Amino acid sequence: MPTNRQDAWSNDEDLLLAEVVLRHIREGGTQLQAFEEVGKQLSRTAAACGFRWNSYVRKQYKSGIELAKKQRKEQRKQAQSTVEEKSVPEEIASSVPQNEEKVTTIDFDDLVSFLKILYQKLENKDGQSEKIQELEQKVYSLSAEKEKLLNELQTIEQDYKALIEIMERARKMVVLQEEDRQQKVKFQMDKNGNLERIEK
């Protein structure tokens, strides 16, 4: 006679495992979370619950799993559509409705929050305009400083050219003086073959 193991799974435990896992699938939770929840209820480890699910129970609930996944998709679509309905005030501010027959209802709280957002954007623009004015003043002062530096550079260049011109004149004067000195001094050979200096 075969003996049942002390830790054998009963039909009720399999049913509980299936219900919890399917609920987690429907609600968008993970199977691991389901295994942990069942493990606490049945005094088993999450690994044991996962093994039982994958080896035996899952095969019996294929249609239930598919149904739970469909329900999860529908819930996500509904949640997304409600989020889109809540975001209508922001869309009103950013775009003109394409279909004029489409009527949207906005409750008072949404309108107030929309106006608060607009007010914050306006305040941000005021802060930006102050920053723009500050930057324009900085540009003005930098352009004035640039103009001043350009004038100084032009003056320095003119002084440099004048200095070069003076130096060139001085060089020419030295060369001319040397030539004059060389022209003033003449040598003449006397009868004995000696050179004599003759002043002009």
Rank of each mutant, 00 (worst) to 15 (best):
E145G: 06
Q133Y: 11
K138E: 13
V185T: 14
N151H: 12
L150P: 02
E152L: 11
E168Y: 02
K146I: 11
L176I: 03
L163Y: 09
G127R: 15
E134R: 12
D126I: 14
Y140Q: 12
E136L: 11
I132K: 07
Q177H: 04
E145M: 13
E168T: 06
K146M: 12
K191P: 01
K138Y: 00
K191Q: 06
M189V: 10
K172E: 10
K184C: 01
Y140W: 05
V185G: 02
Q183H: 07
R171V: 04
L142Q: 15
I166C: 02
D159P: 00
K161F: 01
Q133N: 15
K146P: 00
R169Y: 02
I164P: 00
Y140M: 03
K146V: 03
K146G: 01
S143M: 14
M173D: 03
I132F: 07
V174K: 07
S129L: 15
I132A: 11
L176W: 02
I156T: 11
V139Q: 15
R181V: 04
Q188N: 03
R171G: 10
M189A: 04
M167S: 07
Q133M: 10
E179S: 01
V174H: 01
K148G: 00
Q177Y: 04
T155H: 03
A170H: 05
Q128T: 11
Y160Q: 13
L135R: 14
E145F: 05
Q182F: 01
L163V: 05
K131N: 08
S143D: 14
L150T: 15
E179I: 08
R181S: 12
E136S: 13
L153M: 12
S141F: 06
K131C: 04
K186Q: 14
S129C: 13
M189T: 05
Q154M: 10
Q154D: 13
Q188V: 04
E145W: 05
Q158I: 04
K184W: 06
E147Y: 09
Q183I: 06
L153D: 07
K138G: 08
Q183G: 02
K172A: 09
Q188C: 05
K146Y: 11
V175S: 11
Y140G: 02
R171E: 04
Q137P: 03
E147D: 15
Y140P: 01
E165P: 00
E165S: 10
Q154K: 13
K161V: 05
K148D: 08
I164K: 14
M167D: 04
Q133C: 07
L153R: 09
A170P: 01
Q177E: 09
M189F: 06
R169P: 01
K161E: 04
E157Q: 09
Q158N: 10
K186Y: 01
K184E: 06
K131F: 07
G127I: 02
T155N: 10
Q188I: 04
I156R: 13
D159A: 09
E130R: 15
D180N: 12
M167P: 00
Y140S: 13
V175P: 02
N151P: 00
D159E: 10
E152C: 05
A170S: 04
